[in-house]
Simulated scan of single mutants.
Amino acid sequence: MRGGGGGSRARQNAIRSGLVVLGAVAFSYLSFRVGFKPYLDRAQEAMDTHVSSTAAATDGSVSDAAQPDHAGEEGLATSKDPAVVLRD
């Protein structure tokens, strides 16, 4: 007869499986961050620039007519359309 050894083996297998899953999730997250870093940085920069230009526009120094709806010569910073941030 085998006694209570089967329960500890099942518990060890469950812990091992949990660690493998956590490792896979961590690896996937880091791969995503590294793979999409240029795009994420560009999107963050565009959002920061848009927020600062919006704050300047409320002061009256920059009018809405001076900012085009889509990215022009100045790049993504002047766009009001969030989809333009992800466009190359």
Rank of each mutant, 00 (worst) to 15 (best):
L19H: 09
A10Q: 09
G5V: 04
H50C: 03
S61N: 02
A57F: 02
V25R: 04
R11M: 14
G3Y: 12
A71V: 01
A65L: 08
A24Q: 11
S61Q: 10
V84E: 15
A77F: 05
G5Q: 14
R2V: 04
G35N: 03
A56G: 00
D59E: 13
M47K: 11
A65W: 02
A77R: 00
E73F: 06
A56D: 12
P38W: 09
D81I: 07
D64S: 14
G3H: 12
A56E: 15
G75Q: 06
A14S: 15
M1N: 04
K80S: 11
D59F: 05
E74I: 09
G5D: 04
A26L: 14
I15W: 01
D59V: 07
P38V: 03
G3I: 08
E45D: 10
I15F: 14
V34M: 08
S61H: 03
E73Q: 15
D88P: 15
G4H: 09
Y29N: 02
E74D: 12
A55K: 12
E45Q: 14
V34R: 07
L76M: 10
A65N: 06
L76A: 00
P38K: 10
G6H: 08
A83E: 10
L30P: 04
E73K: 05
E74V: 05
V85Q: 03
D69S: 15
T58P: 02
F36P: 00
E73G: 14
L76G: 10
G18N: 08
Q12L: 12
R87Q: 11
D81P: 09
L22F: 06
L40C: 01
